Amino acid sequence: MSDLLTLAGIHTHIGRYHILHGVDFVVPEGQTTMLLGRNGAGKTTTLRTIMGLWPASSGHISLAGQRIEQRATPDIARLGIGYVPESMAVFSDLTVKENLVLAARDGPLDDSRLEWIFGFFPALRRFWLSRAGSLSGGQKQMLSIARAIVEPRKLLLIDEPTKGLAPAIVMALIECFAEIKRRGATILLVEQNFHVAQQIGDAVLVMDNGKIVHRGDMAELANDSAAQERLLGLSLETHQ
């Protein structure tokens, strides 16, 4: 198994604040890697730094052997990275259809892939010609994820996709991520819901104060309540 994404010694400053302090990790190709940690640990900053939205102050980021830390965000996306920010970032004044057309950079929408997406998110078919701004929070999250997967991507960076969503939508997301992985995508996913994380994660990284403080198998962490409490201040039993 090869490493698709590599971060080596990444430091990120935002204004006068030093957020990431020498972040090192790899994301194996074809796996779902969970990035966990308490609020403010640096998880979102890590994803934004990978995408070039906040430039790394120092260190190296490589995608499939290509250095990307000095590239512009659109160029990074064109290398095959899909990004789902916590803010969802849909175009509110455009319809669901128009949002997906814009996201399909390589050409017209693929009907078979759309049908596959509708299988997970049937609301998007119902609201196909509705303005995205009129959707509920859960429906906007569906659209944000659909935008990222409307074409095959090498790597998906997803920031807290289940936050504030109803259990039925969360289950649809879990099924969607599992199917995306079966189709060959690699996922780096920030998630606060540990019960969700242990269902879909292969590997796990835990951040604290801008550093990686734990790395290993997700199943091992899910079975170690003492490590959960030490690293995250929680236990799986309280997040069922």
Rank of each mutant, 00 (worst) to 15 (best):
H239Y: 09
S136E: 08
L94Y: 10
V26Y: 03
S134N: 13
V26G: 13
I174R: 05
N99S: 10
L157D: 01
R153N: 01
R113F: 05
T44Y: 02
R105P: 00
I149S: 11
G233T: 14
V96P: 04
R230S: 14
T238E: 15
R16F: 07
I212K: 15
A123M: 13
L231S: 11
P55G: 02
L7H: 11
A178D: 08
G233H: 13
I180T: 03
A77E: 04
T12M: 08
S87H: 12
E220Y: 04
F120W: 13
R78D: 01
L156P: 06
G82M: 11
T73M: 12
I10Y: 06
G9F: 02
I200P: 11
A8R: 15
I61Y: 05
P161G: 08
M88G: 04
I187E: 02
T73S: 15
K140N: 06
I68Q: 06
I180C: 12
G137S: 04
A132F: 10
Q66K: 06
G52H: 05
M1L: 14
A203C: 05
S235T: 15
V96E: 14
A222F: 06
D159V: 09
I145F: 01
Q66T: 06
R182E: 10
E175S: 13
G82H: 12
E69C: 08
A89D: 12
V150Y: 01
Y83L: 06
S235F: 07
D202I: 06
G37D: 08
Q66P: 03
S2T: 14
R71M: 15
R147E: 08
S92T: 14
A77V: 14
A41N: 07
D24G: 05
Q192I: 06
R48I: 02
E175W: 00
E191R: 11
R48E: 09
D3N: 13
A168Y: 03
E179D: 15
G119M: 09
Q228I: 12
N39M: 12
M1P: 11
I145K: 00
F127S: 05
F177V: 06
W116A: 05
T186M: 09
F127Y: 13
G164K: 09
D224A: 07
L100G: 03
Q70D: 09
A56R: 11
Q141K: 07
I50H: 02
H18C: 09
R78I: 01
A172F: 02
T95W: 09
D106Q: 15
S112Q: 12
G30W: 08
H60C: 02
N223T: 07
R71P: 07
N209M: 09
L109R: 00
L20N: 04
G184Q: 10
Q141T: 00
I174Q: 10
G119R: 08
G52R: 02
P28V: 07
F118G: 05
I117P: 03
K163I: 05
I117S: 03
F194D: 00
S92G: 08
R230K: 15
E86H: 11
K140P: 06
S57V: 03
E115S: 13
E237C: 00
A104Y: 00
S235Y: 11
V206N: 06
K163A: 15
M34D: 03
A227C: 01
Q141F: 01
P74A: 03
